[in-house]
């Protein structure tokens, strides 16, 4: 159920993001989802890729600090209120979302969202009970 997300430390300077994406592109690694959190000095690039082990190796070889974090990829209805419904379910159980961002591509007519949640196991159980689809590793890498 859990998918490996890579977090990469980046200094806030011109061209840095381009360098990471180029590096991954050359190694034929496909970025499935991406988000960038930043401050005035530095940022954290979070990506879900099709070949995470290879991506880690290449980034580390090139001197980047990389950490793997487990996230959930959740399918929601791509219509008004779709996200609100999922958040409401988590909220009702006091399950805290640390951050979330959207997938670039779509498998079906539904949207894919990435959730980083403190209580991963609790969230998985809860969402499954409510009939919300969580993608497996295999499903994600086949996107």
């Amino acid at each position: 159920m859990k998918v490996q997300q890579l977090s990469i430390f980046l200094e806030n300077r011109a061209g840095r993001l381009a360098e990471v994406t180029e590096l991954l592109g050359k190694a034929e690694i496909n970025i499935r989802a991406l988000s960038l959190a930043d401050t005035s000095d530095f940022g954290i690039l979070r990506v879900v890729v099709n070949k995470p082990e290879k991506a880690v190796r290449i980034l580390e070889e090139n001197g980047f600090t990389v950490a793997g974090t487990e996230v959930l990829v959740v399918e929601i209805d791509d219509k008004p209120g779709g996200l609100a419904r999922v958040l409401k379910i988590l909220n009702a159980r006091d399950i805290n979302v640390e951050y979330m961002y959207a997938f670039m591509e779509k498998l079906t007519d539904r949207a894919l969202l990435i959730f980083r949640i403190e209580d991963m196991e609790g969230a998985i159980e809860l969402l499954r009970d409510k009939g919300i689809k969580i993608l497996t590793k295999k499903e994600v890498s086949s996107i």
Partner: peptide, 18 residues
């Protein structure tokens, strides 16, 4: 330099470190 020992996925933790 932010090495693996201190790197965190969370901005807040890095700011606290700094």
């Amino acid at each position: 330099e932010v090495g693996e020992e201190v790197f965190s996925d969370e901005i807040r933790k890095l700011q606290q470190l700094s």
